[in-house]
Amino acid sequence: TYTYKLTDEEASRRAEDEWRNRGYDVRVRNNNGTWEVEVR
């Protein structure tokens, strides 16, 4: 499981799409203004 911490929502969406396209399960959540993109 990888977790990315990003401050930019758009960057988190791009990361989400990119990993999803590669067949990974992705979750995005906002934690106090930081976007966490979790990849498994």
Rank of each mutant, 00 (worst) to 15 (best):
W35F: 07
N30A: 08
V37I: 13
W35Q: 00
T1P: 09
V28W: 03
E38I: 14
N21L: 13
K5N: 11
T3V: 14
D17S: 14
R27H: 12
Y4C: 09
G23D: 01
R40T: 12
T3P: 03
R40E: 06
W19A: 04
A15W: 11
D25G: 05
G33I: 01
R40M: 11
E16S: 12
V37M: 06
D25S: 10
G33C: 06
R29W: 12
V39D: 00
E38H: 08
N31E: 08
T34L: 12
A15P: 02
D17V: 15
G23I: 01
E16P: 03
A15I: 15
N32M: 08
Y4Q: 04
R14T: 07
A11W: 06
L6D: 04
V26E: 00
D25W: 12
S12C: 15
T3K: 09
E18V: 12
W35S: 00
T3F: 11
D25F: 11
R22F: 05
V28E: 01
R20M: 06
Y24T: 02
N31Y: 11
R40Y: 12
R40H: 08
Y24M: 04
V37H: 04
R14S: 07
T3H: 07
W35D: 01
R40N: 07
R22S: 05
T1F: 13
R14M: 09
R20G: 03
Y4T: 03
L6A: 11
N31Q: 08
D17G: 10
R22Q: 07
R27M: 12
E36Q: 06
L6W: 09
E18C: 15
N21F: 08
W19G: 01
R20A: 05
E38N: 05
V26M: 00
Y24R: 02
E10V: 10
E18G: 06
N30F: 15
Y2N: 06
G23K: 02
T34Q: 12
E9F: 10
E9T: 04
E18I: 13
A15F: 14
T3A: 05
E18A: 11
R29E: 06
D8W: 04
N21I: 09
D17N: 14
R14K: 12
S12K: 05
N21Y: 07
K5D: 07
A15S: 06
L6E: 06
N21P: 00
N30M: 11
V39I: 11
E36W: 14
W35R: 01
N31A: 08
L6R: 02
R40L: 11
R27E: 12
N32A: 08
V37Y: 02
R14W: 08
R13H: 08
K5G: 06
G23F: 02
V26F: 02
R29C: 08
R14A: 11
E16I: 14
R27T: 15
R13Q: 08
V39N: 00
R40A: 08
E38L: 10
N32D: 09
E9S: 05
A15R: 05
K5F: 15
N32E: 09
T7H: 13
L6N: 05
G33Y: 02
E10A: 13
V26I: 04
E9P: 07
E16K: 06
E36F: 13
T1S: 13
D8Q: 04
N31P: 02
G23R: 01
Y2P: 04
E16M: 13
R13E: 04
E10M: 11
D17Q: 15
R40W: 14
T3S: 07
V28D: 02
W35Y: 07
Y4F: 14
L6G: 07
Y4H: 04
D8F: 05
E10Y: 10
V26Y: 01
D17H: 13
L6M: 14
V28M: 05
Y4M: 09
E10K: 09
W19E: 02
K5M: 13
A11M: 08
T7W: 13
T7R: 13
Y2F: 13
A15D: 05
N31H: 10
N30K: 10
R13Y: 06
E38Y: 08
N32I: 03
G33A: 03
D17E: 15
Y4S: 02
T34N: 08
R29P: 02
E16D: 03
A15G: 02
G33H: 03
G23C: 09
D25I: 13
E9M: 07
R29Q: 09
A11I: 05
W35L: 03
E10F: 09
S12R: 05
N31K: 09
T1Y: 14
T3N: 05
W35P: 01
K5R: 12
V28Q: 02
R13M: 08
A15N: 04
D25V: 12
Y4R: 00
V26T: 05
T34S: 10
N32S: 07
R40Q: 08
D25Y: 10
Y2C: 15
Y2S: 05
W35A: 01
R14D: 06
D8A: 04
V39F: 04
S12Q: 03
N31L: 12
N21Q: 13
D17Y: 14
V28A: 04
V39G: 00
G33W: 02
Y2I: 13
V37K: 00
Y24E: 01
K5Q: 13
L6Y: 15
R40P: 04
T7L: 14
G23Q: 02
W19Y: 06
D8L: 04
R14F: 09
Y2D: 04
W19P: 00
N21E: 10
R27K: 13
R40F: 13
G33R: 02
Y24C: 09
R20D: 01
R22L: 12
E18K: 11
R29M: 10
G33F: 03
T1D: 07
T34G: 06
G33D: 05
G23V: 00
E10W: 10
A15M: 15
V28S: 05
D17M: 15
Y2R: 12
N32H: 08
N30I: 10
E10I: 10
R20P: 00
R14E: 08
E38P: 00
R22E: 04
R20I: 07
V26H: 01
T3I: 14
A15Y: 11
N32W: 03
V39C: 12
E38M: 10
N32F: 06
S12G: 09
W35T: 02
E18N: 08
G33P: 01
V28L: 06
T34I: 15
D8H: 04
E36T: 10
Y24V: 03
E36K: 01
E16Y: 14
E9H: 06
G23T: 00
R14I: 11
N21V: 08
R13K: 11
L6I: 09
Y2L: 11
A15H: 11
N32K: 08
V39R: 02
A15K: 11
Y2H: 11
G33S: 03
N21M: 12
R40V: 10
K5S: 12
K5H: 13
V26K: 00
N31I: 14
R13G: 04
T7E: 14
N30G: 06
R27C: 13
R27Y: 12
Y24F: 12
V26L: 00
E38F: 08
T34F: 13
R40I: 12
R20K: 10
A11L: 07
R22K: 11
N32C: 15
Y24G: 01
E9A: 09
E36G: 00
S12P: 01
E9L: 09
W35K: 00
V26Q: 00
G33V: 01
Y4N: 02
A11N: 06
E16R: 09
Y24S: 01
G23W: 02
E38Q: 09
S12V: 15
T1M: 10
R22V: 03
G23P: 01
T34W: 12
R29G: 05
T34D: 07
E36D: 04
R29T: 14
E16H: 08
R40C: 13
N32Q: 08
E36C: 10
N30E: 13
T1I: 13
W19M: 05
S12W: 07
E18W: 15
V26R: 00
W35H: 01
E9V: 07
A11S: 12
Y4K: 03
N30Q: 12
W19S: 01
D17A: 15
A11P: 03
R13L: 08
Y24D: 01
V39L: 05
T7A: 14
R27A: 11
R13N: 06
D8P: 01
N30D: 08
E16L: 12
T34E: 10
V37N: 00
R13S: 05
W19H: 02
E16Q: 12
R14Y: 07
V39W: 02
Y2W: 15
